[in-house]
Design a protein around this nucleic acid. Sequence first.
DNA 1: GACGGCTGC
Length: 791
Amino acid sequence: MAIISRKGSQLVRKHREQKERKKAQQKHWELAGTKLGDIMGIKKTEDGDSSGGKPVGEDGKVDYRTDQKFADHMKDKSEASSEFAKKKTLLEQRQYLPIFAVRQQLLNIIRDNSIVIVVGETGSGKTTQLTQYLHEDGYTSYGMVGCTQPRRVAAMSVAKRVSEELGSNLGEEVGYAIRFEDCTSEKTVIKYMTDGILLRESLRESDLDHYSAVIMDEAHERSLNTDVLFGLLREVVSRRSDLKLIVTSATMDSDKFAAFFGNVPIFHIPGRTFPVDILFSKTPQEDYVEAAVKQALQIHLSGMGGDILIFMPGQEDIEVTSDQIVERLEDLESAPPLTVLPIYSQLPSDLQAKIFQKAPDGVRKCIVATNIAETSLTVDGIMFVVDAGYCKLKVFNPRIGMDALQVYPISQANANQRAGRAGRTGPGQCYRLYTQSAFKNEMLTTTIPEIQRTNLANVVLLLKSLGVQDLLLFHFMDPPPEDNMLNSMYQLWILGALDNTGALTPTGRLMVEFPLDPALSKMLIVSCDMGCSADILIIVSMLSVPAIFYRPKGREEESDQVREKFSVPESDHLTYLNVYLQWKNNNYSSIWCNEHFIHTKAMRKVREVRSQLKDIMVQQRMNLVSCGSDWDIIRKCICAAYFHQAAKLKGIGEYVNVRTGMPCHLHPTSSLFGMGYTPDYITYHELVMTTKEYMQCVTAVDGEWLAELGPMFYSVKQAGKSRMENRRRAKEEITNMEEEMSLAEQQLRSRREDQDRKSNVGSVRAVKICTPGRKEEAPMTPKRTPARFGL
DNA sequence: GACGGCTGC
């Protein structure tokens, strides 16, 4: 299960006879003897003797387990649940949920404790019922009950459901708040929201006085915001004894969560899902695409009913897998019909919607998905899951300020989540394209939380603005690598957000107001003084959404040609501006987008972001002016916020990073790529390691601008000899350095070693994240270095 | 001359 790089699958094209294939496949799988329920912690007891039902004392910790007999009873009954749902009233449905049976126990434990960890399994009803129970128990008489969700759609849909159950209109007693929508009123007592909203609210009201209880739902997903909230809310509860905090978790993290919040009690609520048979591959698969294609066909031809869901790491794999399944099926005579549907986030929404449409009678659906189908999307009727065992992960290396996007093995938690997708509407099967030994010995139990593998500039700025003096002492459940924190503080100092003592400057204070990466906020602030804020506002908005350009399979060249029409030769930023202005001139038309291979969804979001940022600018009394056609001013403004990410021309089309000396490449999608126009200096928005170190979104700048705007790095006087000297030194260091690991990677490795020791298995795989990096000291030594940042 | 998983304010 080592990290792998696959350049397309070398698929064997010849097909065998149907029977042979089936026979071979049957040999290939072994039943693991494990049902999903066991892994998830639901253990059926043969003799009916339940281990739960009573508090289990352990180190003074109370562990409540609910009646197992009840859970089993519920499981048996749940066969008829969908029919049931149609006939019963809302109240009856509520009472039928597993959580209802433990309602009073749950309320008692919440009354007796400030913080409770709730392990609520899938289908327990915790998300919709917990808030209502607290409301019924009187908590809303002195404040709101807030419930955070990691995703916007979840916050909206759950709020809608709960308002129906309470018989009120959405936005009155029950409301929700997400980034572009506040659907609450003075009447609101139950508020669903994304975790990011609660984090922003804590900026304005650090004790969250409006709330009597906060439920952090799906906390085991460990989003960046969740982790920051963990640290903050722990403090808030210690200051406010009247505030209740309920954190929901998965079984495997519950002890860790309980320990973090001070040995608080754990309460288990059984779920209601169907059993899923887990089948592991007997031997390691060399090519997971090939293996997945074979497995899907085998299931399809076996005659068993039910839809198939295949998990793949990325778009390219999905496309190859889909094509192969269709192609091989065509070769077979009299094969039953199959609809193959790819899905990933970048797919236009009309194509995404297809996976929810019911296939014609007698036609099976086969969905090929990224991990978007793991949590974000739920498709009913899936009976078979085929799990390749990989996902793509972005890991930030603070030393060279670069993200690496690579294929990694998933964690055991991911694998179980994926398997669970087969057991939503009936018993199912999950085929894992890796061995049971790989699962046990080579996969991490849980994925490394985002906070340990991402750029922290935003988190640092936020915590600083909350008055956290010493960030290294802030109580994180899993502290981010210290390197990463210090680097982020350094970046904020460069941008003028922190002063030499590490305190927030007025610029920093203004930057916090914007829901943006610090460099983008800075660019917006600078643009007001430079007289191009209206234009920069658009560019910043364009950079805040995922991919704008759409490149459909089979029409690559056509879409590239259309894209070139928008190209501004000296700048990708200006190219974006150009796209937006043309879209505006075409009345924000979606037809225009489709004609020009541009994602309509993305552009609509750009408009929303722009409008939100504009509101903040007005509120902060920042002036909005356009520089018209003088686009040099815009380039200089970009340089003012991104001078720390600059590269110098080295050879034909070759660049080296000015600070680190590391070779960097223009991305082939850049306007500057292969145009014969190669400026001496450029700044870039992002550095990402994929197949090479690529600079994404670049703009040509003048060398003098760099010296003028980034005096701590560059000076005109030094140009020439000393820079050459520095580059030479840098180069030497690169060649002499042994491979460096980012801290996230080190942690990954040490966790691996821990597990290896436990299981007595030798080190199984080498983990490699980045190309050789170099030490932090930049060739351009900063002229003045701030004192240690408030440490 | 390559390609980008998923969220969120």
